[in-house]
Design a protein around this nucleic acid. Structure first.
Lengths: 96, 96
DNA sequence: TATGGTACGAACAAATTTGTCAGTTATGGG
DNA sequence: CCCATAACTGACAAATTTGTTCGTACCATA
């Protein structure tokens, strides 16, 4: 469910609260609008995030983690710690 | 590093000790020899598992988790717990 | 009337990951 | 000599994921 190039990254950005589409786009280096849309849609379908549309002009939409996704936060933070600890291992694949 | 369709599965199988190539092949439903080889090679390069070749005939090779990979065990077991707890969420993608 | 910002969608192409299938090596047993 | 076995390897194809480029609706403002 959280596989692929962007999903974990998106979820992490939402760890500290709601973000708008454009905020996510700006914070995630290299993602295209298309990919962001696709991934957000999938995460929504999977029940990991909630999409809020505000009926304004210009349009405003934001995203937030569901309760279920919040339970994952401590887990991926452990993964992140592991990654930090064994950083050298990852040099083979981080260059890009 | 542990992304893709097979890697976590392979690592999980090795949680309780060494397994031979053929044992992995038999325990992992649906994997082809080619995929198993490729994934094992990558996991080895990444430093997550160790390959032992015994100079016998017929040939024997087995694989085991490295210390570093063992540190990941509790983490993916938490992921697994999370999955069990929210199983209904996953019905969308488990059918196959 | 023309322009701009926001959050997309659609058509298509490129790249990456998986899968299929047919070998290969090495050696002891019949 | 021929066969069987374990663990692969290589050529190629199919499927999946990502990326590129353009277009849309909406209304406010100049």
């Amino acid at each position: 469910m959280i596989g692929g190039r962007w999903k974990l990254l998106i979820l992490c950005k939402l760890e500290n609260g709601k973000l708008r589409f454009s905020e996510l786009r700006n914070q995630i280096n290299g993602i295209t609008e298309r990919m962001l849309t696709l991934q957000l849609r999938e995460l929504e379908k999977e029940g990991l995030l909630k999409r809020n549309v505000y009926p304004e002009v210009p349009p405003r939409v934001d995203y937030e983690l569901t309760e279920i996704a919040k339970e994952l936060v401590p887990i991926w933070s452990q993964l992140s710690d592991w990654g930090g600890k064994h950083r050298k291992l990852m040099d083979t694949q981080t260059p890009k």
